[in-house]
């Protein structure tokens, strides 16, 4: 592997200053499970690797019980999310997604922030955060700015982050009662594979009438960047959700998707799987709502 100087700042400001001093030849690193592979393969040739591991503030996971807002530090590992009972119980869609990223060895080190910044079209980590209306907090030389997680992605492997900017955390606004959410990574096997297609669904129902007041259908590998199936979401609003409605929503989402043929699978198969799994994830949402989760 190419030799580099390893820097481990303890604050975001210090990290940005380091990056400024070494500009072109410096790279930020989260857990390193992607960056180290890139350096080994020669796809990335940094003279300075700036590890964000020692910045305590961006490694915290907590929920503000007064406001109901969830805050996920960018350096929180997938395994931390997977093992959190709060995540398991209150944000099942996050659990569904992070528990099948890479392998346990990767999840023990890899971070949610790194997963987002990597911006692969599959983006298992991004789909639930988009479905939950997550907001990313970025910090650069000019200060902080917030952007919806769904707007982070420009094209495969490219985000809107400026060179020296750091993703600090993702905040999830409070979730309405009677909300269910679920994600499936569909592929040949879950571990160490990118999904053929990723499908996340979130539904909120009106307590009295049981009609849908909020719907999110988010797809990974269905377009160059993670996408929302807005037409399918709109279709669900105001309806009493049952199997027939979910089947229809699946069809609309499949039509909206911009799937392609790739080495991992064919476009027609991906569309078919969107159809099937939008329905199944929708049903899982209903089950969770009925179970009072």
């Amino acid at each position: 592997m190419k030799a580099f100087k390893y820097l481990s700042p303890t604050t975001v400001e210090e990290a940005i200053a380091f990056h400024g001093r070494h500009s072109e030849t410096a790279k930020y690193m989260g857990g390193g499970t992607d960056v180290i592979v890139k350096v080994k393969e020669g796809w990335m040739e940094p003279d300075f690797l700036i590890s964000l591991k020692k910045i305590k503030k961006i490694g915290e996971l907590n929920k503000n019980n007064a406001t109901g807002e969830l805050s996920i530090g960018a350096m929180v590992t997938h395994a931390t999310l997977e093992k959190s009972l709060m995540i398991q119980n209150e944000y099942p869609i996050i659990y569904d997604a992070v528990s099948n990223i890479g392998s346990l060895q990767v999840r023990n080190v890899g971070t949610i922030g790194g997963n987002l910044i990597n911006a692969v079209p599959s983006a298992d980590g991004a789909i639930p955060l988009i479905a939950l209306d997550g907001v990313a907090l970025l910090h650069g030389p000019e200060g902080e700015r917030s952007v919806a997680v769904k707007d982070l992605f420009v094209s495969p492997y490219k985000t809107i982050l400026k060179p020296r900017e750091i993703l600090k955390k993702i905040t999830i606004p409070p979730q309405a009662p009677h909300t269910g959410s679920a994600y499936i990574k569909f592929g040949r096997r879950a571990a160490m594979e990118l999904p053929l297609i990723g499908i996340g669904v979130l539904l909120t129902l009106n307590e009295i009438q049981g009609t849908c007041t909020k719907a999110r259908i988010c797809l990974g590998v269905a377009a160059p960047t993670p996408m929302r199936a807005f037409d399918a979401e709109k279709f669900l609003i105001g309806k009493k959700i049952n199997e027939a409605i979910l089947i229809e929503a699946g069809k609309i989402a499949a039509d909206e998707s911009r799937v392609r043929d790739s080495v991992r699978g064919k476009a027609w198969h991906r569309k078919e799987m969107i159809r099937v799994h939008v329905r199944r994830m929708g049903q899982k949402c209903l089950e969770l709502i009925n179970a009072g989760k």
Binding site: Y6, A79, Q105, V109
Partner: peptide, 19 residues
């Protein structure tokens, strides 16, 4: 290359010695 670091299974091929 799995080893255990602070009780967690980790790929030692992707883990920098300095860390």
């Amino acid at each position: 290359c799995t080893v255990i670091i602070d009780k967690l299974a980790v790929n030692s091929c992707l883990y920098l010695a300095i860390e």
